[in-house]
Amino acid sequence: MDRRALLAVVAAGLSGCVADPPLASADGSNESRNREPPENADPDAQRWISIASTDEIPEEAELEIDAEVVEPNVTPEKTARVEVTTTNRGAARKLSHREEMCSIFNRDRGVSVADGLVLHRPSSAEWMDRVEGKWSPDRPAGEPRGYASYACGQKEYDESASVTSVYDVWDDYRTWGYMRPGTYRFETHVATYPPDAELGDESDVEFTWGLELKVRKP
């Protein structure tokens, strides 16, 4: 079966216009912890991805959320990879995200706020056709985004338990240009629940957490 036909079995999710939006800004406070780009790289074929900043977490949440660029290079053969790890520093309880399909940047939360970059789980990216030599889906810019239709409930975590989500960095096919240099912000909703909470129960603590990635040419 054609891969695009498989992807058609999704719930359509529409985004905003496809005009070139302004990029979000960041202070670059965490950039020094990333390695330097390689020498003699082709600037037309490659990009360099680093973490520009991450949001602080409310103290009452008793959580740690750490982001790391484990593969910073984007080339025609491979793209950058980011890992986000959430650790429970409180007593056993439930959190709003888990592995794979219900991960922290699930579905439309993996699209940068100002559009331009998209975080895809490696398992879902395997089904996407891409533009030759680029990490951009081979789709018309006007084609709506589509997301698989499934429900996400809370998952219980013991004290000090953690979950790591892995994402490949892709260009956003709905914006012009390819991985334009700049800073891109991603935001997601995080909530904690009592260990006996059921779907639909109120959360103990909830907040918005953000990550900013910086793109530059080597």
Rank of each mutant, 00 (worst) to 15 (best):
I51H: 00
R81W: 05
I51C: 03
I51L: 14
T87P: 05
E60Y: 05
A52G: 06
W48P: 00
P72R: 02
T54P: 02
S53E: 15
V82N: 00
Q46N: 15
N40S: 13
A41V: 06
T87G: 10
A67H: 03
I49D: 02
I49W: 01
R81I: 10
N40A: 13
D66T: 15
D55M: 08
R47V: 03
K78H: 13
D55F: 06
P76S: 11
I51A: 01
A41K: 04
P72V: 03
I65V: 14
V82M: 05
P76N: 09
L63G: 01
T87H: 09
T54G: 04
T75L: 07
P58A: 11
T79C: 11
E59I: 09
R81T: 11
D66Y: 11
A67S: 11
A45K: 10
I51P: 00
P72H: 06
K78M: 14
A61V: 03
A80M: 08
A41H: 04
S50P: 07
P58L: 09
P72W: 02
A61M: 06
V69P: 00
N40E: 13
A61H: 01
T54A: 10
T75E: 08
T79E: 11
V82C: 04
P76Q: 09
P76G: 08
D66M: 12
V70I: 15
K78R: 14
P43F: 05
A61P: 02
E77Q: 14
E83M: 12
A61C: 07
I51T: 03
D44N: 14
E60G: 06
Q46A: 13
E60C: 06
P76H: 06
A80Q: 02
D66V: 15
D66F: 12
V74P: 02
V74H: 02
A41N: 05
W48C: 01
I49C: 03
Q46E: 13
E64I: 06
N40K: 13
E59C: 06
V70T: 15
I51F: 04
V84P: 00
I51E: 02
A45F: 07
R47L: 06
V84H: 01
Q46C: 14
P43I: 07
E71V: 10
E71F: 05
Q46H: 13
T87F: 09
R47G: 01
D42L: 08
D42M: 10
A45L: 15
